[in-house]
Design a protein around this nucleic acid. Structure first.
Length: 257
DNA sequence: ATGGTCGGCCACCGA
């Protein structure tokens, strides 16, 4: 089976591109971030007409996530945001597909080290880790994927010197990423040899995509029980070449039986 | 050439 994550940066703008992509990449599940839609405006009918089931969780203007799947995800398995962590911001959606627990997340950006938004990012990361630890007790087969807004290592950054201690690259953010791995999760992308300078996000500014100046901040983490079944994990740069692209590329995971 | 972007939504903020 195939699973994917994509920060679409406004589903209202990107819906046609997303449906096109699903046609050529018929994944079993796709999690979206930054839908930027209130729930009443979510294009469920269009997604269902394309042959998919979907659960969604949004808000006005910012954030917003969705879980799209070929097979239905039972509503009583769906969680929105982190239990016990009151949050105005719609960032997490989880659901169960067969024996597989799928968590899609839009991690806080954090703006800049020392800012209020950075403090929120740290608190959110702490709550996420504690919750995912609980989820792992109930679901041996678990995938955590989304826009982490963390570049785990210097090789995930086009200019690690310029980005040293900047947002996405601080010691604190990287420690949180490692703590997630410490729960027994594996960065599926790094299970394989990958092209050097593999990024998942390129700033709209400064011709960053043309110059391949990006960061790898979108990730798919899999639990130990799934590790042996992972047959591929790739970033699909093609949609970033579209007209009016998202600034993020999808990341795709292939899982054997 | 030292700037150069988007999206949401209308004056800027957030990324």
């Amino acid at each position: 089976m195939k699973l994917a994550t994509w920060n679409v940066n406004s589903l209202a703008v990107r819906l046609p591109q997303m449906l096109d992509w699903l046609q050529t990449h018929p994944v079993d599940a796709l999690v979206l971030q930054e839908t930027k839609l209130t729930d009443d405006k979510f294009p469920a009918a269009e997604i269902q007409a394309a042959g998919y089931h979907v659960h969604w969780f949004g808000q006005k203007t910012y954030n917003g996530v969705a879980l799209i799947s070929r097979e239905p995800v039972a509503a009583d398995t769906v969680l929105r945001n982190i239990p016990g962590f009151p949050d105005e911001q719609a960032r997490v959606i989880a659901g169960t597909l067969g024996s597989l627990r799928v968590i899609g997340a839009y991690f806080p950006n954090g703006q800049a080290p020392g800012s209020e938004k950075f403090a929120y990012k740290m608190a959110w990361l702490e709550a996420l880790r504690a919750w995912v630890a609980e989820e792992l007790k109930q679901h041996a087969e678990l995938v955590l994927m989304g826009d982490f807004n963390i570049a785990p290592e210097d090789r995930d950054v086009y200019d690690p010197v310029a980005w040293a201690d900047q947002i996405h690259c601080t010691v604190e953010e990287r420690a949180h990423f490692q703590a997630l791995l410490g729960l027994g999760l594996v960065d599926a992308f790094r299970l394989f040899e990958q092209p050097p300078k593999s990024w998942s996000w390129w700033d709209y500014r400064n011709l960053a995509f043309r110059k391949n100046q990006g960061l790898r901040i979108d990730h798919i983490l899999v639990s130990e029980a799934l590790r042996g079944r992972v047959s591929a994990c790739e970033i699909d740069k093609q949609p970033r070449r579209n007209e009016r692209p998202s600034d993020h590329a999808p990341v795709v995971l292939s899982l054997g039986s």
